[in-house]
Nucleic acid binder design. Structure first.
Lengths: 195, 195, 195, 195
DNA sequence: CATGAATGAGGATTCATTCAT
DNA sequence: GATGAATGAATCCTCATTCAT
């Protein structure tokens, strides 16, 4: 027989996730500054004060959304990559997974893509750590590409990330799919070097 | 020989420009939402109410900063490009000018680079118009590149803009110069086709 | 016997009513424009921001005061009128009740009497609706007066309302009572026709 | 030959009158509190600071408008009255003139009719003095009515003023004319006593 | 005479957050 | 666990007014 307190847990986690979802939604649409605690609470059909049972502050709430976003992209990229053997194929698959997360309604990932933490506030520094955690994966993929100088690898990484994350600004749902976009963008870099 | 009709003006415009500079500075560092009118006023050693002598609202102030940013990048790109003859060289020179504006202390340009207007607020729609005005220039350069399908041109444009604008997130003043960065990034796309 | 379903409520409504009272007081003394949210808050020993817990805006707060004012006059007129049988007596009793509300410390009624909504702002249009709701009662009393043409009824109504509401400008507490004033004013119109 | 300084005067007075007109217009439409100095200045195509060449403050500007309003109604009532011989006819003519000023686009008179000064602010006390100056005229007309007790006279005055000034709230330009309205309203009081 | 520039006080409202219930 | 109430600081902006030019 299970004890009561483990029976109660899933309920709790469920509530937490609801709030997190609402927060992701709001932050993805409005950003950290313009997305208010009130917005989030009302999106979750809850009073603002209730949020503080689960999250210490707006900042930590944002951080949790951000971390969850990183986790999700990471997972989807990891999954996508295993089926590929050749380095450039791996990179392309990773890019496709990255874009799919970003462009198809996963608000958590959108928050990660749109929030480029700068400055030296404590929050931002923590966000950078989370983000790096993810970007390391890409660095690894790029590292294994053949025939590239270290410098080229560095610039390829920056350019690829910039190009991929910018898609949120021009992507149009009906048209080219995230996979297609990934193929085309990676293709721009790939042709010349993958010989 | 100077014309008479602008005598006296510079003084008047001077104050306006000071305030505009302060605003550019604040908006570049904090963004539209987090950059408050108070911040800007105190950066200009002025009372917040004084700003409203020159600008009708925070939004129009931001818009003016944005427009000035667009104007500056545009001018610097136009200037940089004339000395180049071959299409890829033109593009590289344009990218270099773009990055120089962005990365070297020109807050106006930074505002343009970091503000990617989305959504349908009236302000954002106006910003998009200003921005398109500038991007058209780049489209023209890319259009003249040889041996590229229309699709490739489209993706090249999106990827290049994404890669260039993302530099603000990782650029470090002491290291590679904007020109060098531009050369490397354009180089990633260039090699294969520019033969 | 009290029902259970409102147990606990009075406490909650109590606070709201306090604020409404403070607002009525301020609006009655200074009017809508000159009566500030700060005035009201400090009259209620509360922070201005606390008002927004109960009322969405200064306008809706005012509207609630106005509606409550209408409700109170209406109730007092309805009560006063039932004891009277003859049409002119009914009208006089109504006028007396109207003036009593207006002149004796009921800030809510004073707000109604002093705010003559004009113009086409959304607030004013709503106020007119509330006011008409009340004036309809008087129209009914006047309608039942004998020996009056429709035109005379119309002018009697306008003149009587004008005369009654203007009393707030000259009424002096120690002197003629509201009832006496009502009797005299109605008497001016009454003599000739009530035969 | 006229000296220069008397030649210049009319110009100045003309300007002053323009500003006064603009102020009357704004105050009539919005009232003292909601009508801002900016509103007035822009209605007069002038900078706010320019107003202070002619008027010491918003309050004194309002007071001048008010005084001018009183002067105008007074004049028009005086003129209207001379052609009448019988007391009730005089009163009716006065009421007609009063209403004509009020209802037909004379913003100055409207300000007087709509501003019922209360309270003990210095401005309001001065306004009351101006207003009394005018009301004395009406008191005189009423005083000469035959067969009325003093009390009746007092109430007649208050009621008549109330009824007349309230017309601004329901008057509709196309319908009954001010003269007609005056005739009807005075008629309500007149019939019974003018025998 | 007119005004552009500036101001400090105050306008209504929203903010993230706390806490007793 | 949830919330209604409250808060103080901050939000953008408007106010009437002053004064050097």
């Amino acid at each position: 027989m299970l004890s009561n307190r483990t029976v109660g847990r899933p309920r709790l986690e469920h509530r937490r996730l609801e709030l997190l979802n609402a927060a992701a939604n709001v932050f993805a649409r409005k950003g950290f500054d313009a997305g208010s605690v009130r917005d989030i609470a009302s999106a979750a059909n809850v009073q603002p004060s209730s949020l503080y049972h689960f999250f210490g502050s707006k900042e930590t709430l944002f951080e949790e959304v951000y971390m969850e976003g990183v986790r999700r992209i990471k997972t989807s990229v990891e999954t996508a990559v295993v089926t590929q053997g050749r380095p450039w194929d791996k990179l392309e698959a990773a890019a496709a997974a990255h874009l799919t997360s970003l462009l198809e309604d996963d608000f958590f990932s959108v928050v990660v893509a749109e929030t480029i933490p700068k400055g030296t506030s404590e929050l931002n520094i923590r966000l950078i750590v989370h983000r790096n955690d993810y970007e390391k994966m890409f660095i690894a993929f790029i590292d294994r590409l053949p025939n590239l100088t270290n410098d080229n690898k560095k610039y390829l990484r920056f350019a690829l990330f910039g190009a991929l994350n910018a898609t949120v600004n021009w992507y149009q749902p009906g048209k080219d799919s995230p996979e297609e976009i990934a193929r085309r963008i990676v293709g721009l870099f790939r042709v010349q070097l993958d010989t």
